[in-house]
Write a protein that binds this DNA or RNA. Sequence first.
DNA 1: AATGTGACATACC
DNA 2: TGGTATGCCACAT
Length: 111
Amino acid sequence: MGSDFFRDVWEVVCLVPPGRVTTYGAIARYLGAARSSRMVGWAMNACHASSAQVPAHRVVNRVGMLSGKVHFDDPDRMRQLLEAEGTEVVNDRVLEFSARFWDPMVELGLE
DNA sequence: AATGTGACATACC
DNA sequence: TGGTATGCCACAT
């Protein structure tokens, strides 16, 4: 663990503001690894073992579905965390996802 | 070094 | 965003 790639992923995820969500693909592109979106998900899986607090619940797939909820301690945890931030979730999907989408490429400035 | 893996993305039906 | 199939690539073993 402790790979730069994973750390970069966690760093970006930590920058996602409450009430907003981003996608695996967006993070991957931001890190210059557009085709490594799966690794972003894997980094989330690894964040459990990490000492860093990563708001993995703000990371969803491209349609706004909470595809990774089952990897939380409690499957319902992800939805609860999102709703606590004002992100409405119905049927494991973020409402008005496109409006809540937080693109690091845009928000952090293209790099 | 080779193989298996996966919390995705895309193309297609 | 219904379902299936394929590509993708960093990481663990």
